[in-house]
Design a protein around this nucleic acid. Structure first.
Ligand code: FES
Ligand code: FES
Lengths: 144, 144
DNA sequence: GAATTAAAAGACTTTTTTGTCTTTTAATAA
DNA sequence: TTATTAAAAGACAAAAAAGTCTTTTAATTC
């Protein structure tokens, strides 16, 4: 469904939302541990998200990654688009160069319903909502 | 959603169903042209599907790939499982090692509905059904 | 201002996926 | 039975994704 990069990105965003909700920042090492990802790899991913304005960061002592209240309202769709592009939102399920109602592939009619459900789900699901459930220990970012 | 390999596999299966419905066989070159895929690559994919009994083939003159009436009832789920494994049917959407109701990731509750829809769709969609729509020129296996 | 801290940048490596090519095997046709 | 045809097998190559490491830049603390 998502690339490994994108899976890490989503998990990291939720973790950062949780760890920075008091206005503090969280470092790469803690993020990597918190979501069970390779440290340098998630660093690279977050730098890219930083460049695109999806996550905030600050260098130096007390520095790290954080999300403000508006950042907490970021949808998963925003993250997925930034990392994986919009293939999942508009691409053909059977790999034709273009998905089109006028020139549909054999799976088109079955596929567009699912694609719409995925799109709706990603659009309506916000990082902050997922973080709240995480706080209540109803969900988990890693297996131990 | 699916790997390139799996996209080609599904398209090839539908094409083979179409071309072999009169009891004849279709060669690799025609398949590659018919679904717009690299010739040697789809050959390799179909060999693997052949080993797993998902498609039939015969060597020599008048040889090629074909599907009998029972093969035409093959579901997309069978093809996807043979090629991509069952990650899409049971894997965690955020990449945790295991998807579990007892230890759900933040996306679990949103994701399992979509996963169930995908599973149902792949199980109920049969190669033969898609081939019939293709015959009516309602759908297409390639652009141009 | 100097030392320290932590992210940014980017070069590099490994693994996986995708794609290509050549040789072998098996079926048919003459 | 020999030539021909077409898939099977498997080695090989290229590209993309995933992961690692080192150096640079920018904050903070002393
Ligand atoms: S054309 Fe394939 S999903 Fe629309
Ligand atoms: S645990 Fe992640 S989808 Fe079920």
């Amino acid at each position: 469904m998502f690339s490994k990069t994108c899976e890490y990105a989503i998990r990291a965003m939720i973790f950062i939302a949780q760890q920075s909700k008091d206005g503090s920042r969280v470092g790469i090492k803690d993020i990597a541990k918190g979501i069970d990802s390779p440290e340098h790899f998630i660093a690279k991913i977050l730098q890219e998200l930083g460049r695109k304005g999806v996550v905030q960061s600050l260098k130096g002592p007390t520095g790290g990654f954080y999300l403000d209240n508006s950042g907490r309202k970021t949808s998963l769709a925003t993250i997925v688009k930034a990392v994986d592009g919009d293939d999942i939102f508009s691409g053909c399920g059977l790999g034709l160069k273009q998905c089109s109602d006028k020139h549909p592939c054999p799976l088109h009619h079955e596929f567009i319903n699912i694609r719409k459900d995925i799109t709706n789900m990603l659009n309506k699901t916000k990082v902050g909502d997922l973080q709240e459930e995480l706080d209540k220990k109803l969900t988990f970012l890693r297996r131990d």
